[in-house]
Nucleic acid binder design. Structure first.
Lengths: 172, 172
DNA sequence: TTTTATTTTCAGAAATGTTTGAAAATTAGA
DNA sequence: TCTAATTTTCAAACATTTCTGAAAATAAAA
């Protein structure tokens, strides 16, 4: 059975929904991801009003999630001459978006955990099996989370062409 | 100020809490992460009863999250001779845990999104700017998510030393 | 300055996710 | 088979997160 061609509207809703679901697996709430998807596929920048209408959400909700997206560095505020409203637009370069997400997740998730693991590693050794196991597990956990941190740090340092080389080598 | 040495109990609680926080950024609920942490640092396998007592949770809650952890392939059921109860133990090899998580997240998160992006890509081209933008963004998104999928697939296929050697080569 | 457009805040409402506990189902041994 | 130990289910209670909408704050124009 061949896949039916989707209309623009159907495709747009599917994409916004899919991006929302993926986002919610990544500690980003659904609305935040949906606003991001909407701005990502919009050729022009949009006002809060337009975002509210398009996604059927309240002003407060729109405002809050727009600010969160700006905190993540994924969207930006712009102005139009002779217009008092604020317009929002997404960074469109997919690699830049990837780098920005890598940068924020390192800072928000990995680094706090690495700090805690460092403390736990410092436990007083009373030579019991339980303490031994806790120390061993913590050491291995810290090693692995540390590697993930280095990897994301590397991503933020790479430019696009180095990234493409990296992808090529991934092929096998 | 030098960091004070933690007691076993303090360290254990810190670790369980840290693992829970990291887990919650990964679509895993608090109790599920706590049970996993508890089994990870426990030298012996534990019964449902012991897990309930240790974490102060109900039988239903324990049962449900134990099953979820088994679905993820992170813990296993064992039996002791002459004992009717089920005992649970965590996979201890940290690299094996990483591979298992990579395998599941590919299946649960990336592959469904890739499928949707394939559908959206198939949109009827009406030559408007909006359609053009949607197609372009979808194509780039699919490329990127596809690469993330290949990367996780590689993790599941490599052994630890091979994987870290691979990452080392990327450094420069 | 005053008026008007726009953005931000936040208390309560709604929605979603988690936990409980007791009853039902299952399983193994007698 | 029957009995007793153990596991599973699930409706209702509880907790947490997200969303709303109207009021307050801000900023630009008159």
């Amino acid at each position: 059975m061949p896949t039916a061609e989707l209309s623009y509207q159907e495709a747009k809703e599917l994409l916004i929904q899919a991006w929302g679901t993926l986002g919610s697996h990544w500690g980003i709430n659904k609305t935040m991801a949906q606003i991001h998807a909407l701005l990502l596929i919009s050729p022009e920048s949009l006002t809060t009003e337009q975002i509210m209408e398009e996604l059927h959400i309240s002003r407060g909700n729109a405002n809050m999630n727009i600010r969160a997206l700006m905190d993540w560095g994924l969207i930006h505020k712009t102005h139009k001459p002779g217009d008092r409203k604020e317009y929002f637009s997404s960074e469109k370069d997919m690699w830049e978006i990837t780098r920005q997400i890598a940068r924020e997740r390192r800072k928000r998730e990995l680094q706090p955990v690495i700090k805690v693991l460092g403390q736990v590693e410092n436990i007083k050794d009373d030579r019991t099996a339980h303490t031994k196991e806790l120390k061993q597990v913590t050491k291995e956990l810290k090693f692995l989370v540390g590697k993930a941190d280095s990897f994301l740090n590397m991503v933020t340092g790479f430019d696009q062409s180095r990234f493409f080389n990296f992808l090529l080598r991934l092929k096998k």
